[in-house]
Design a protein around this nucleic acid. Structure first.
Lengths: 155, 155
DNA sequence: ATGTAATTGAAAATACTTTTCAATTAGATT
DNA sequence: AATCTAATTGAAAAGTATTTTCAATTACAT
């Protein structure tokens, strides 16, 4: 199990949750995954290590991880069913349109923008939410006919 | 019918769609609405003017409007089922956490940020997506006990 | 080892969205 | 104004995603 998954396990315990075999399997999958994963994808992958895992538990575990801020929903044009790790703190996601790889980045200095919008609209701005989309280095190198994950997953 | 809805009607015709009674009703509701609305909410409101409207048609019309860029899905923590008008061009949404009011704003200059992230990650960045959340002027004035729309809609 | 509340999976229920299809209709053509 | 035709419609069915229920199991404090 990766270090990140171990760390998450501790956090779960700290928050008063039991660290079950099923939860371990789910943690391991998302912590290891470099792409965004839907509950069904997490289910499929986690069942390799834990065959009696139920889909319900995947949903429940994802909810806990979200609540603890360890995982965040990734919002795409196609739908908002996927999750990616969000290792604490304030960060945003950079997502590869081709393979689905997700990278976190921090240090978004939007203060001037936020202030300008606040002044113009009279809103008190409480949160912001930024996602970037593009092509990752690996997919840039790949010719257009090569197999790539996550594009056209659904017809 | 508001001017915006009339304009949208023209755009539909231009794109080769027929301007039916049902579509008019849907356009009118979203163009007039200052908040984000789910398909079911659009359905309820549009049926006042057009009682034989079907929910299916609401979905179909929202899809057309999205495709033409006149409407955009609003992504919230709670879910991503709502839509708000997006009067053309590149713009982002500022959303009131209390009443659900949606305001569009433009002129997000993220170029320095985007460039920095691109350099650090090697990604070619193709699109970005920004949403701001806060409290609108009206809801700021309202005391905490007053009725407010859209908060706690679902339990 | 034991006790107990949290957790589990399966099934049912609920929610959301799309597809199918025969009937209707917008709008072009006469 | 009447006619034509392909686009559009709503209802029902199907499909997909998610949550709830509940009896059985299990983590882990004692």
């Amino acid at each position: 199990m990766s270090t990140e998954a171990e760390e998450w396990g501790k956090q779960l315990r700290l928050a008063g949750y039991k660290l079950t075999r099923q939860r371990r399997a789910v943690l391991a999958v998302i912590a290891a995954g470099e792409t965004h994963l839907s509950p069904a994808e997490v289910y499929d992958q986690a069942r390799i290590a834990c065959p009696d895992l139920g889909l319900t538990t995947v949903y429940r575990t994802l909810e806990i991880l979200s609540e603890l801020g360890l995982v965040r929903r990734v919002h795409l044009e196609k739908g908002c069913h996927s999750f990616a790790s969000a290792s604490g703190g304030h960060s945003h996601h950079l997502i590869c349109n081709k393979c689905g790889e997700v990278i976190e980045f921090e240090g978004c200095d939007l203060s001037p923008l936020l202030e300008r919008v606040a002044q113009r609209t009279g809103f008190v701005i409480e949160a912001h939410w930024l996602e970037l989309f593009g092509t990752c280095p690996a997919c840039q190198r790949v010719s257009e006919n090569s197999p790539q994950r996550h594009q056209d997953t659904k017809k």
